Amino acid sequence: MASTVYLAMLRRQLTLALRRPVQLLNPALFFAIVIVLFPLGLGPAPDTLSMFAGGILWIVALLANMLGAETLFQSDYDDGSLDQLLIAQQPLYFLVMPYLLVQWLLSGLLLAFLSPVFALMLGLPQQGVVVLMASLALGSGVMSVLGAIGAALTVGLRRGGMLIGLLVTPFYMPVLIFGSGAVSAAVDGLAFAPYLAVLGAMFSLAIALGPVAIAAALRISADA
């Protein structure tokens, strides 16, 4: 029974996301536009762009992920679906998992798959491209969970997007440090596996404990 409800929720979230193509493509479009603008600001010198490519890509991915988190629960809050979710018989821990999975698939993993194109545009050496994809895939999962916690806490507030940024940005910093560190280590020919291992540990911890925090935050927002 629980698995049936979970699959139904997952199908619902995917359907809603596909019905809103503008919101679906916003993170990817933001990612592409900002990456294209960086060569204009830093200059077209290949050495300069190559030096900062890993950090640039990670920072823009972080901002794009934050952009998609703002509306994660908003539509369900507006139409009352969130109230039904809170009083459902199934544990809220499992009911919020489809939100996280769809958010990660359509923002984090999508950006990870698109990143090689923009990495080559910025001149990132080839040995860093695969590591960039792996680090973004893991790190974006952590950022999706952190963004969902912020979205759950601010779902009933106006201008919640600014508050989400203030709440979750400090927690994004370790992900950014280890993610960009993995890319830099790969480019310099150093061991990058420890960085990916730390990101994997963060990802596992976020998946295990994140839904608990999201469920608690949604209940707090509903009672406020």
Rank of each mutant, 00 (worst) to 15 (best):
A2S: 13
S3F: 15
T4M: 12
Y6Q: 04
L7N: 08
L10S: 06
Q13M: 13
L14R: 12
L29C: 09
F30L: 14
F30R: 07
V36T: 11
L37E: 13
L40V: 10
G41P: 10
L42D: 09
L42K: 11
G43E: 11
A45W: 14
A45C: 12
L49K: 02
S50G: 05
S50F: 03
F52Q: 07
F52L: 11
I56Y: 14
L57N: 08
V60A: 05
A61V: 08
N65R: 09
N65C: 12
L72Q: 14
D76L: 03
D78H: 11
G80C: 00
G80P: 02
G80R: 02
L82N: 12
I87W: 11
Y93F: 15
F94V: 12
L95E: 14
L95Q: 15
L95T: 10
V96A: 06
V96H: 09
Y99A: 02
L100S: 03
V102I: 15
L105F: 08
L109P: 03
L110Y: 08
L110M: 15
L111E: 13
L114S: 05
S115E: 02
P116M: 00
P116G: 02
V117P: 04
A119H: 00
L120D: 06
M121L: 15
G123Y: 00
P125A: 02
Q126S: 12
Q126Y: 11
S135G: 04
L136C: 04
L136N: 01
G141L: 13
S144P: 08
I149T: 08
V155Y: 10
R159H: 15
R159N: 15
G160Q: 04
G160Y: 01
M162V: 14
L163P: 07
I164R: 10
G165D: 10
L167S: 03
L167H: 01
V168H: 04
P170D: 05
P170T: 04
M173R: 06
P174S: 09
I177Y: 07
G179N: 09
G179L: 01
G179T: 06
S180D: 01
S180T: 08
G181C: 09
A182E: 00
S184P: 04
L190G: 06
A191L: 07
Y195N: 15
Y195F: 15
L199Q: 02
L199Y: 01
M202R: 00
I207S: 10
G210P: 01
P211A: 03
I214L: 08
I214T: 06
I214D: 05
I220W: 11
A224C: 09
